[in-house]
Amino acid sequence: MFLTGPAAMFAMLLTYPDEGPSPRPWVMPLVFFSLPLLFASLALRLALPVLKSAPQPSKDRSSAAVALCIAGLMFALALGPALDAIGLFG
């Protein structure tokens, strides 16, 4: 998020007009969460096979579970502003 923050601010600067609402309010959340969601989807892709194949009391299994929790949190954090930007909440 530290890498995509400045790019998201620049995208917001380019898409929001001086007066009135933006015609494209979804651009800033898309740019802001692009890299974190990419890494979260990769974590999802790598963690699911580990959870299926690793034995029950192993560090690999607990690391995969933590990665899935963090990925789920990232998806939830990205989904809220995106749905708010398209007008679902208000």
Rank of each mutant, 00 (worst) to 15 (best):
A67G: 06
A85I: 09
L38R: 01
P49L: 06
P36T: 04
P23K: 02
P23F: 04
D84P: 00
L44P: 01
A78T: 08
K59E: 13
M1L: 12
S41K: 03
S34Q: 12
A67I: 12
S22N: 07
F10A: 15
V27H: 00
F2I: 14
C69D: 06
R45M: 07
P6W: 00
P25M: 07
L51N: 08
M74N: 01
P49M: 06
L44E: 02
V27L: 15
V27R: 00
A54M: 02
P57S: 01
A64W: 06
M1N: 10
L77C: 04
V31S: 01
E19C: 02
G5R: 11
P57I: 01
P36W: 07
M1T: 08
I86S: 03
M9I: 09
R61V: 06
P21A: 11
L38K: 05
M12Q: 09
S34L: 15
A64P: 09
Q56W: 07
W26R: 07
G87L: 14
A8R: 07
F33Q: 03
M1K: 05
L46T: 13
S58P: 13
A78C: 06
G72C: 08
P17M: 11
P81V: 02
A40C: 12
A54Q: 07
T4H: 12
F10D: 11
A64L: 08
L73T: 13
G72I: 07
A85Y: 08
I70D: 04
A82E: 01
S63R: 14
M28Y: 00
V66K: 09
F75H: 15
A47M: 06
S41L: 13
F10P: 02
P55N: 04
G72L: 13
A78N: 08
P29K: 01
R61L: 03
S63P: 05
F75T: 12
L38H: 03
V50H: 08
S34F: 15
F32E: 03
W26G: 00
S58K: 10
G90L: 10
L13N: 12
V27S: 02
F33S: 00
L68S: 05
L46S: 11
A65M: 07
L73P: 01
A8L: 05
P36C: 04
L68Q: 02
A76D: 13
A43Y: 00
L68D: 10
L79Y: 00
L30M: 11
L38C: 05
A76V: 15
A40I: 12
F10H: 13
P25S: 10
